[in-house]
Amino acid sequence: MDPDAIATWPTGRLLSTAARLVEHSWERYLGTRGLTHAGLIVLHLLNAGPQSQRTLARGAKVTDQTMSRTVDRLLRAGFVDRATDERDRRRTTVTITAAGREVHAEALVAEREDPVVLGAVRDYEAFRLQLVELVTSLNHPT
């Protein structure tokens, strides 16, 4: 892409292009660690403690079936354990493993510091705050 031409693009086009490019680099990064974006969300949710698959599905805003497939992948990778809930045998409880905590922690650092993941962002925290403000204001117009 020609940097001079890019400088003339409207802000909306810049945002959508940047989002796609960051998403692709993030997916590549996660893939090298045996993770998907959905799997990373589950690990993030499990940092609060063991949860049922249904609770994880609600927290991730996906169907129970989608969560089951995501947990299956994480289980095969060794990032979570799954067991029948002792109090309610109909429920399945998911727990993050040491390997899951480690890969989650690495991903959080990469998200903030790895130029391959985020590109040329100079001040990650300021950039992130601007994105939070933008999404919040557009999601809840005054």
Rank of each mutant, 00 (worst) to 15 (best):
E102P: 01
P141K: 00
T66Y: 06
D88W: 06
V121F: 06
V109M: 02
L40P: 09
L14V: 10
D72M: 01
G78N: 03
T32F: 01
F127S: 11
T17F: 02
M67N: 10
P115K: 04
T36S: 13
R112W: 05
R87W: 00
W26T: 13
Q65G: 09
R112E: 01
H44N: 09
L134T: 14
H140S: 13
R33L: 11
Q53W: 04
T11K: 05
R89H: 12
R122N: 11
Y124V: 14
N47L: 10
T17L: 04
G119D: 08
V121I: 15
T70C: 01
S52W: 03
R90S: 15
V42P: 10
A83I: 11
A83G: 05
R54D: 15
E111D: 07
L118M: 12
V22A: 11
R122H: 12
E23L: 01
T55Q: 12
M1H: 07
L35I: 11
R20C: 09
P141E: 12
A107G: 05
A98V: 14
K61F: 12
R76P: 09
R54W: 12
D88E: 08
P50A: 05
Q53F: 06
A99P: 10
R90W: 07
L131P: 01
L45D: 02
G34W: 00
R101C: 08
S25D: 14
N47A: 12
E23R: 03
G119W: 12
F79P: 10
I41K: 00
A83P: 03
A107F: 04
D85V: 01
T93H: 03
G78A: 05
I96R: 03
H140P: 09
L14C: 01
T36C: 02
V22L: 12
A83M: 05
P115C: 02
T92E: 12
D4I: 05
V42D: 09
T93P: 05
I41H: 07
G31V: 02
H44V: 08
F79Y: 15
R89D: 12
H44D: 06
S52I: 09
D114L: 09
G34N: 06
D72H: 07
E111A: 11
L75A: 07
L40I: 11
G39C: 07
Q65T: 14
R101K: 03
A120K: 00
E27V: 10
T95D: 00
A60N: 07
V42T: 15
E106C: 00
R87L: 04
N47Q: 14
G34T: 06
A7R: 07
R69V: 15
G31H: 03
L30A: 04
A107E: 01
Y124F: 15
D81V: 01
D2S: 10
V135G: 08
S137Y: 02
N139T: 14
L46P: 15
A57R: 00
L131I: 13
I6N: 03
V80Y: 08
S25A: 11
H44Q: 06
R13N: 07
A98H: 08
P141W: 04
M67E: 14
K61N: 13
V94Q: 05
L74M: 02
A60S: 10
V94C: 10
T136M: 02
A110P: 11
D4Q: 08
A77L: 01
A19G: 09
D88M: 07
D123M: 05
G12N: 10
V132C: 04
T32M: 04
F79C: 11
E113V: 05
V116P: 00
S68K: 09
A18C: 05
F127Q: 04
R28Y: 13
A105R: 02
A107N: 06
L46V: 14
L131G: 10
